[in-house]
Structures are given as structure tokens and as C-alpha cells.
Amino acid sequence: MEVRTIKVFTTVDNINLHTQVVDMSMTYGQQFGPTYLDGADVTKIKPHNSHEGKTFYVLPNDDTLRVEAFEYYHTTDPSFLGRYMSALNHTKKWKYPQVNGLTSIKWADNNCYLATALLTLQQIELKFNPPALQDAYYRARAGEAANFCALILAYCNKTVGELGDVRETMSYLFQHANLDSCKRVLNVVCKTCGQQQTTLKGVEAVMYMGTLSYEQFKKGVQIPCTCGKQATKYLVQQESPFVMMSAPPAQYELKHGTFTCASEYTGNYQCGHYKHITSKETLYCIDGALLTKSSEYKGPITDVFYKENSYTTTIK
């Protein structure tokens, strides 16, 4: 009895394709271990004539594949690729409408935090270190965002349907971005203890939790000093293409032309909904596939993004 075979390709990165001759009487799992086709788990399936010449994702289970996976995804987590594939199996079914010149995501599976993050990423200057993220990001900007969303979920250790947080998501993504040249110098002034300067680099240099107003941050924000008295913390120097200011959701007025974009969060910790506000020729609110415009805006804002380049204080 002759062994019926077909020729397929296996890959971990969709760049390096490895030619395989597979036995049609055995499952993919018996031949390769966990195997995925377009995100779908085909591990328990036997090869079919229609699979001839198709590319299958496999887990990096030998040295060659491990090197290829690390170079593309910059992670050695053995569960990463499987999590990416199972997320992709959902995100490829989502709709990605162009809204006001940006790629958004039609609401499904509690994905409003991903839509808000995706919209924000198209408006701030950011370059990702893992080629996987950078490639998928370019495709997302062009309207094909399924891979990018699935990668975000995998890097953030999230599953489809789980509630997510924009600030946490951005923080994970910033860790995989090139923020080497970003720098922030802060000064804390206390009447009792004097003053202390701190220099922050990388992710810490672009994120701040405690106030939404970048102007206020430049002037000074009140913080408790270690001595128990009130101290003032203010920005001395900022070198970065953008800054992200966050605070627990509270009524906040966004003035046209003073910011790049913002995240609105309605609801409580267990259950809520994100919308995205962007400042173009007027203010726009993007909620999944829905767009509304207004000249002014007041609502429960939790993150505001500002364009920056270089700032030095005039406070002496």
C-alpha cells in the first residue's frame, strides 16, 4: 500500500517557510505537534488534498525554529505562539472599519479597549522592536488589523473576551517599542525636605499616572512627601515624541487643539466601556464603527496623549 502524501510549508514567522512532505494517514499533531492554519487549530486533523502548498504555523520545537521565533517575536515564552494563534482565530472574524481616516474595530468580545489602543497607536510616533509587531502594525494602518490585535493580546497575556485596560495595554506595548531616546527629568520640591531631581528613561519617561493635564504637570502637581507634608512635583525636561497622561476616570474637559487623542471610560472596574476622542479640525468621538463630532467635550476621561518633541522648564 502506497503512502499518500502532500507537500506543505511549516513556519513560526510566515517569513521562513520549511518544506514538509506530510503523510495523509496521520494527523498534523502526530507529525508536527500543535499546528495552526489561519489561526485555526488543526492539530487533530489529517492532511487533505486542499492543504497542498498551504502554510501551517507550528510551535518552535527545534533550534532553527526557536531562533526564527525569537528573532521575529522577541520572546522565548513557549506558550506565546499558541496564544497568538488562538487569538487570531477570533480577531480574523472582527470587522476593521476605516473611521475618520483611522483603522478602528467594530465592537465584539469586549474589544473596546483594543480599538482605543489601536486608534491611539496610529496617532503617536512609535516604532516597535519585534519585527512581528512592526509588520502587523503597518498592515493594521492599511486596514488589516487582525494579526496586530492578536499579537497585542498575546504580548499582554490576554484572551479574547476578557476586559482590558488601555493604560495597561499601552504599557505592555511600550515595553516592546523603541523608547531608548526618551528621557524625563522631574523635580520634587518640599518646604521641609528641599528639592530632589529624578531622571527617568524609556517607558517611565512617557507615562504618568495622577493627572490628565500635561500643562498642569509642567506647572506642578501636589504629591505627598515622605515627611508627610505636601510637596510639588513638576516637569523639568521632556525628550520624547509623545507623552501619555493618565488618571482614574473623572469628568474632564478636553479643549480642541490642546491634545492629540484621549480615552474615555464609562462604567466601573468590573464592567465598563471605552471610547476614543481625537482632536482634528474639530473633536471626534470614535466608538467602534461609530463616529460623532463636537466642538467641545466633557466626560469621564482616563488617558490623554500629547505630541511632544523637546521641553525644558522655565521655572527657576
Results as ranks from 00 to 15, higher is better:
S50G: 13
K54F: 13
F148S: 02
H48R: 13
K106P: 05
K218I: 05
T64I: 14
T278A: 10
N14R: 10
I45N: 14
L121M: 09
V203K: 11
E68F: 03
V3Q: 13
T91A: 06
H273P: 00
P34H: 10
K46N: 14
Q123E: 10
Q31C: 12
V58N: 07
Y138I: 14
W94N: 03
H90K: 13
A231H: 02
P300S: 12
A150S: 04
H276E: 00
V188M: 09
D303Q: 00
A69Q: 11
Q122D: 04
D23N: 11
Y274R: 02
Q216F: 04
T75P: 05
H273F: 00
V160L: 05
K316G: 15
E215H: 07
T120C: 14
G228D: 01
T198Y: 13
E264Y: 02
Y311T: 08
C285K: 10
T314G: 15
K44Q: 14
T260L: 15
L235K: 00
M244H: 04
V8A: 10
N100L: 07
H276K: 01
T103E: 02
E144F: 08
Y73D: 05
G210L: 00
S246M: 00
C271N: 07
E253T: 11
K219Y: 06
P224S: 14
R139E: 13
E281L: 01
Q31S: 13
K54W: 13
M244P: 01
I124Q: 03
T314M: 14
T278Y: 14
I301F: 00
Y72W: 10
P130R: 04
H273W: 01
T198K: 14
A87C: 09
N111V: 01
C112I: 04
P78A: 11
Q238V: 01
E264K: 01
N49I: 14
A142I: 12
D13G: 06
R167S: 04
A205C: 01
T10V: 13
E68C: 05
P248V: 07
Y284D: 09
A262N: 01
M170D: 03
T76R: 10
E204S: 10
Q175H: 12
A108K: 07
Y306E: 02
A136V: 02
C156T: 10
V3A: 14
T11I: 08
Y57F: 13
T314A: 13
A140W: 02
Y113W: 08
Q30I: 11
Q195C: 12
A136G: 09
K307V: 14
T76W: 11
S171Y: 15
Q20F: 08
N49R: 13
D23R: 12
F56V: 09
C182S: 06
T198N: 10
Y252G: 02
P97A: 10
K93Q: 09
N157A: 05
V12M: 09
C149A: 09
Y137A: 08
T120R: 02
E71P: 02
C190K: 01
A247T: 06
A136F: 08
V221Q: 07
A146D: 08
E71H: 08
Q222I: 10
A117T: 09
H256E: 12
N187I: 09
T314P: 09
Y137Q: 07
L102P: 03
N110T: 02
H74D: 05
W94M: 05
Y84P: 01
L102I: 08
L179H: 05
K218M: 04
N110Y: 00
K92M: 10
L153T: 05
V12C: 09
T302W: 02
Y137L: 12
Y84C: 06
Q196G: 06
T292D: 09
Q134C: 10
T11R: 04
N110F: 04
V188H: 10
F259D: 00
T120Y: 04
Q122A: 02
V243F: 02
E281I: 02
A140S: 07
D77F: 05
L126G: 03
Y306F: 04
H51S: 06
Y265C: 00
L151P: 05
K93N: 14
D287S: 02
I301V: 10
L81I: 14
T211F: 06
Q270Y: 07
T76E: 09
D41I: 11
Y84W: 04
C182K: 03
K219G: 08
G210A: 02
C261R: 00
T27A: 12
E215L: 05
Y36G: 04
L88K: 06
I15M: 10
W107S: 05
V189W: 08
A145Y: 03
L121W: 04
Y172D: 08
N14T: 09
S240Q: 01
P300H: 11
H51N: 08
W94G: 03
I15D: 06
G220A: 06
E281H: 05
M207V: 08
G39K: 06
S171R: 14
Y269I: 15
T199K: 08
S50R: 12
Y172W: 10
G143T: 02
M245I: 04
V12G: 07
S294F: 13
T258H: 10
E162T: 04
G194K: 06
D180K: 09
E296M: 10
V42G: 05
K158C: 01
Y208Q: 06
F242P: 02
G29R: 06
A145K: 05
Q222D: 10
L153A: 03
A108F: 04
A136S: 10
K93Y: 11
E215N: 08
V236K: 06
K201E: 09
V58K: 07
G299C: 04
K191A: 15
C261K: 01
K44C: 11
L163F: 13
I315K: 15
E162R: 03
K54N: 14
Q122W: 03
C193A: 03
F70M: 14
Q122P: 03
Q270D: 15
L59V: 15
T232F: 09
S25W: 10
Q197H: 06
Q175I: 06
V8D: 03
Y28V: 04
A145N: 03
H273R: 00
W107C: 05
Y57P: 04
T43D: 09
Y96G: 05
H48M: 12
T260R: 05
R83S: 08
K93C: 09
V21K: 14
L254Q: 00
D41F: 06
G82H: 15
K183A: 06
F174H: 02
L283N: 00
G202F: 01
G267K: 07
E71Q: 10
Y311H: 13
G194E: 00
V166S: 06
L151S: 06
F242L: 02
R139W: 10
A136Q: 10
K44L: 12
E296Q: 13
I223V: 15
F217T: 05
E204A: 11
Y113L: 01
T292L: 09
K54R: 14
V221C: 08
Y73E: 03
T76P: 14
A146V: 05
L102R: 05
S213P: 02
D109E: 11
S246C: 08
